[in-house]
């Protein structure tokens, strides 16, 4: 742990009419860690991410992302925070490189720098050879990899990934997890990923948070949660066991 707090919330709440999507969320993420954000569908994970990016306003409470309030200064947050939504979309009639170039331009990355970065990240995600193919012809896995490259073009400090490995084949999944892991270890990028694939989360995440019905019911390193929920001394636990225990209690 590097100790520096990169995401911090204070009673962050979002209500849609009478329904509370996120209820008094208090969370702290440290720089450089891989944080897994778990929870059933509709638990408020995506809403939380949207509030972190300033795409939706919290009803009450505050968030601080890389030192800025996303509601007041969304611009500063978006400059240094990447977001890969679930089933990311592309301009299908443009090729991979053109898609990346467009995003680079929107991030005010100058021409020379952006071409270098595009080459580098296309290489990293293994799409160099497909860079001039129309994205419309890409497979699901290729799109997901291109999405990762697109998020990293702006050299973010923090990346939100929503289901980054869904729909990938086993080999693709492994490569994606390795890439995520190396981003955290080598480039000191903080990764915040929400996923349902618990075995994968267990493999790469330093800490996890479990959100159920808008409430954060657990947060901490996986082994600590295991100790707390499954009793001391149990060695061969899985994250799934822990998760199901929390889920049944909630």
């Amino acid at each position: 742990m590097k100790g520096q707090i990169i995401v911090e919330t204070e009673d962050l709440t979002k209500k849609y009419g009478s329904r509370t999507a996120v209820d008094h969320l208090n969370i702290k993420i440290e720089e450089g860690e891989v944080f897994g954000f778990l929870g059933p569908n509709g638990a408020g994970k995506t809403t939380t991410l949207l509030m972190f990016l300033g795409l939706t306003e919290p009803t009450s409470g505050r968030a601080k992302v890389i030192g800025f309030d996303p509601t007041r200064e969304p611009f500063k947050v978006k400059e240094k925070v990447g977001y890969l939504p679930e089933n990311v979309g592309f301009y299908d009639d443009m090729d991979a490189r053109q898609n990346l170039r467009y995003i680079a331009k929107l991030n005010r990355i100058s021409g020379g720098v952006s071409e270098k970065r595009i080459d580098y990240w296309l290489e990293m995600v293994g799409l160099s050879e497909e860079s001039t193919k129309k994205v419309g012809t890409f497979s699901k896995g290729m799109r997901q990899r291109l999405g990762i490259a697109e998020v990293l073009i702006k050299e973010p400090k923090l990346v939100f990934l929503d289901e980054p490995t869904i729909g990938l084949d086993p080999d693709g999944t492994n490569r994606m997890l390795d890439l995520i892991h190396s981003l955290s270890r080598e480039k000191n990028i903080t990764l915040f990923l929400s996923s349902h694939l618990l075995d994968q989360v267990q493999r790469i995440c330093d800490r996890v948070g479990i959100m159920i019905n808008g409430n954060l019911v657990a947060i901490g390193p996986i082994d600590e949660l295991a100790k707390k929920k499954l009793g001391l001394g149990k060695e061969d636990y899985t994250l799934e066991e822990i998760y199901m225990k929390y889920f049944k209690e909630a």
Partner: peptide, 10 residues
Amino acid sequence: RTLSKLVSQP
């Protein structure tokens, strides 16, 4: 699904 990507750019 490119709109959500577009609005998360600076």
